[in-house]
């Protein structure tokens, strides 16, 4: 008695129960099925291999199921809308604030050199301070004199005292 060919055996094994049921009469699959139904040897081999494949599937599924528990469930990436609390927005705000205040601080610490208009003001200020200083010097000098300047004429009416004393010194020498 002929048995199933390799192809017929594979076709029978690969066919799902639905495909076996719905196989058209006279087709390769239907005739292979008819042979297997009447051949205990082919039926036994098919049955043993089907059982082994079922065990293979059962063990593979159990193993994967045990390990999938360790795999985090995939989450879709979150698309962020505009939000004042978004880190990007906060970073941009901080950058803008820094950009505004750092130059200001730099300017306060290191004043810029005078521009073309500033020398006139400086010269003017310089002149005023010199006048003030001269006035103060005059006041100090007058205060330090033993005889006030309005009374100086009374002390030496001829105004020669100095010259006379100098001539006397020269003579003694």
């Amino acid at each position: 008695m002929n048995h199933l060919t390799e192809e017929q055996f594979a076709e029978l094994l690969a066919a799902s129960p639905r495909e076996l049921r719905e196989a058209p009469a006279g087709s390769e699959l239907a005739s292979a099925g008819a042979h297997a139904a009447n051949c205990p040897e082919c039926t036994a081999e098919l049955s043993q291999l089907r059982d082994s494949l079922a065990l293979f599937r059962e063990a593979g599924t159990a193993y994967a199921d045990a390990h999938i528990r360790r795999v985090p469930a995939w989450q879709p990436p979150v698309r962020r809308g505009f939000s004042l609390q978004s880190p990007y927005w906060l970073a941009a705000s901080a950058a803008a604030i820094l950009a505004a205040f750092v130059p200001l601080q730099m300017a306060l610490r290191h004043p810029e050199p005078p521009t073309a208009e500033q020398p006139m003001q400086v010269v003017h200020q310089h002149t005023a301070s010199e006048e003030d200083q001269a006035l103060l010097d005059d006041v100090n000098r007058e205060l330090s004199e033993s005889v006030p300047s309005p009374l100086a004429a009374l002390v030496d009416p001829a105004g020669t005292s100095t010259e006379a004393s100098q001539n006397a010194k020269q003579r003694t020498n």
């Binding site: 593979g60 994967a64 199921d65 390990h67 999938i68 795999v71 469930a73 995939w74």
Partner: peptide, 28 residues
């Protein structure tokens, strides 16, 4: 869909590649 199909995709990749890390990465 993830709850329903992630185990199946992982199982197929694990049996195909026979490597846990690769199967996890490719499932994601």
């Amino acid at each position: 869909i993830v709850v329903l199909y992630q185990p199946r995709v992982f199982r197929f990749l694990l049996a195909s590649l026979r490597d846990h890390d690769a199967a996890e990465t490719l499932t994601q």
